[in-house]
Structures are given as C-alpha cells and as structure tokens.
C-alpha cells in the first residue's frame, strides 16, 4: 500500500480506465467531482436521502455519496457526463439512444443527448435543475427494471430522488417518455432478451412494439412544440 493513507483504485468511468490513489473514506462522488472533474453529478444531502448524486454502477443506479470510492474497485461507473458515450457498462442502453437522437437533430449540433435527457427537455422536467442529473441516471436504470410505464409505478421507482422545487409531474412524464422510446428501440434490436427477463418477469408485457411509430411521432411533435414555445418567449 502507498504513503499518506492512500490506496490504489482501478475502475472504469464513462468508458475510460481510471487508476487513482484515494483515501479510505473518500466517497465515490468526491472521486468523481474533485479528482476526475466530472461535475455533472451533483452533491445534495450527502447522506443518501436526496438522490442528486445518483450514478450507474454496472448499469444499476446507486447514490455516489453513499459508497466509498474504494468499494468500486473494478466496477464500471457511468455518470451523466458520459451518458451518451460508448463503451460503458450501459453501452447497450445508450448506443441506440445516441443514434436516434442524432437523426432527430442536426448532425452538426453537438453535443448529442441521450434519449432520457431529451425527454426531460421535451417535457420541461426541470426547474432549478439541481436534482436533474440524478433523476436522469435513475430513470436510465429503470429501462431494465420491472418498472411499468405508468405514473404510479414511475413515481414509486423515483422514490429515492427528491426534487425540492417539487416539479415531480413533469419529471414523471419525462421518464415515461424516455422509457417508452428506450424500451421499444432495444426490443427492436433484440437487446432485451429472454435470459434477462427470467428474474424480471412482467417486463415483456410492458413492451408495446405496435406503439413505436406513434411514440416517435409524438416525441417529435412535442419537441417541435417546445421549440415553438421557446421562439415566442
């Protein structure tokens, strides 16, 4: 082990190998924000209550203020900063999203957004924005969970994320939009396979393939509406 009570940590963050010496009581969010400069993840309560610091570890949402950086040895971490980058532990979640978003936008327009990020914009799902990165990371993890696309189920699944502006209505709508598109596109590509569904029975019933086209149309239309509104402001 090294000097000054620092210990070696190797992990993958947003597709990059990271090798760093950290103190035993350094939390993951401190590593991400202070050592790696990834400030998209916000520090809220720092005691695992608000969810603003939510990131993905091996595709699962966790609160980065409430795990030690050293506990993440060898794990694959994705933050909001790298949501649309590949390869990551959530490549299967994001590649299609990036492509879809790219076609929906001017190809020269950078940076591209993840489908869930776009859904939050479309639905006006943020006020002060402090909770947003955590909300979006939590929502992205829901794609593979037994979360039905209805208001009650989504609100329940967002239970670990607080919005102090209390803008939950639009957040829930945004998550539903994002989940609908992400699940449909993955189903088309055969990414959601039956092996994985063994332990998450019920997911099949939520995939509505017939509604994909209308969903995309709706998505585009809403997007246009928002743009129009912004233009008139």
């Amino acid at each position: 082990m090294s000097n000054a009570h620092q210990f070696k940590l190797k992990l993958q963050v947003n597709g990059k190998q990271v090798s760093q010496h950290v103190a035993p009581d350094t939390s993951l969010i401190e590593l991400l924000r202070l050592d790696l400069g990834l400030t998209g993840t916000n520090q809220g309560c720092d005691t695992a209550q608000c969810g603003a610091c939510t990131v993905l570890v091996d595709g699962q949402a966790i609160k980065s203020c409430n795990v030690l950086a050293l506990q993440m040895q060898g794990r694959v971490v994705t933050t909001i900063d790298g949501l649309n980058l590949a390869p990551t532990g959530t490549e299967h979640l994001t590649t299609q999203a990036t492509q879809a978003t790219q076609t929906a936008h001017d190809a020269n327009e950078a940076p591209t957004l993840h489908i869930m990020q776009q859904a939050f914009i479309d639905q006006g799902a943020l006020q002060c924005g402090y909770c947003t990165s955590g909300m979006i990371m939590r929502a992205v993890a829901m794609v593979h969970e037994r979360v039905a696309i209805d208001e009650h189920a989504v609100a329940l699944a967002l239970g670990g994320n607080l919005c102090r502006c209390t803008g939950y209505h639009n957040i829930v709508q945004a998550v539903m939009q994002g989940l609908t598109i992400l699940r449909a596109s993955q189903h088309l590509r055969g990414i959601i396979n039956t092996d994985r569904l063994d332990h998450t029975n019920g997911l099949e019933g939520e995939l509505d393939v017939s509604g994909i086209h209308s969903t995309h149309d709706e998505h585009d239309e809403k997007h246009k509406t928002i743009k129009t509104n912004q233009g008139s402001l």
Partner: peptide, 9 residues
C-alpha cells in the same frame, strides 16, 4: 427497503 439505489448496494 429504502429506495432502489439503496437496495442496489
């Protein structure tokens, strides 16, 4: 128990 993020860890 708790919320999904807590249950994952």
């Amino acid at each position: 128990i708790g919320d999904q993020q807590v249950r994952n860890m």
